[in-house]
Nucleic acid binder design. Structure first.
Lengths: 144, 144
DNA sequence: CTGAATAGGACCGGTTGGGTCCGCTTTTCT
DNA sequence: AGAAAAGCGGACCCAACCGGTCCTATTCAG
């Protein structure tokens, strides 16, 4: 699968931050707890997003993380790229010039097209489309 | 990357077989050698494709592998699916009913859309589009 | 100064992708 | 019948990677 758990965690954290961004920084602990994400791991992800400028991090007491962008301005594509790197679908050993096995390598073409299509879908959504809604607790609990 | 080396090997082997299918079975050794694929590994891949009915395998002396389908009739999508399983792009922990974090989970929707797009591209190509052309040896050799 | 917070490097264990080995079976040829 | 030439398929191996932990350093509010 292309999109990792890291992506899932990161995206969810951003959704959470989007919802709270008016209310100042949110601590790592709060996010981790509410979203049930291992704290140390989430820390790494948010650090990474901070470096990319998607969130801002404040140290010290009353510190935490704040979303640094307008939710509607940042696309899913950007987010995923920032978390997991560009979506590569196929890795070729050779360069176009010495693609040793096929004189004109369709693979490049086809998989390039695939990547474009993926990008196109992801670019159509922004963080604003992914609303965090404090879900209705365990109302359905006990069914499993 | 979604598509593995296995996929690459498999696809290339099929291309090779497509080119030779008039001339009877081709041995594993020949394919492996020409395409520079580890023999034992390729064996596994072809076995798998044999079970799916994409190639036919003949044992015994003068045995080998033959393409069992019309190149133009089998899509890239089918081939890739047969080699690596369906292209899953995202794995969700929960079922729709208890997707715990977002009341209506956009992820499903978005990533479903992504998978559809990938499928659409791959379905547009068939094995016949991927011609194996005995490339002009090492004409450019010595440059690396 | 102290304590609450992030930063970030080192490390770790399980999974999996890529690959090997080897003995077994099937088939053909003599 | 027997030897040789193929594919079959189970067991195994290794390195990379992903998800995750730990520990110390740094920053900053009060």
């Amino acid at each position: 699968m292309i999109f990792s758990r890291k992506t899932d965690y990161g995206l969810r954290a951003l959704m959470y931050l989007a919802e709270r961004r008016a209310r100042g920084p949110v601590t790592l602990s709060e996010i981790a707890e509410k979203l049930m994400i291992p704290k140390a791991f989430l820390s790494k992800i948010l650090q990474q997003l901070a470096k990319k400028g998607v969130v801002r991090s404040l140290k010290g007491p009353s510190g935490g993380f704040v979303l640094a962008v307008e939710p509607a301005e940042v696309t899913l594509q950007e987010i995923l790229t920032e978390i997991d790197g560009p979506t590569r679908v196929f890795e070729c050993f050779a360069t176009e010039a010495d693609c040793t096995f096929y004189s004109d390598c369709m693979m490049r073409e086809v998989f390039g097209e695939v990547e474009d299509q993926i990008g196109a879908v992801l670019a159509r959504y922004t963080l604003a489309d992914f609303r965090y809604t404090d879900k209705p607790a365990d109302s359905t609990a006990g069914k499993a």
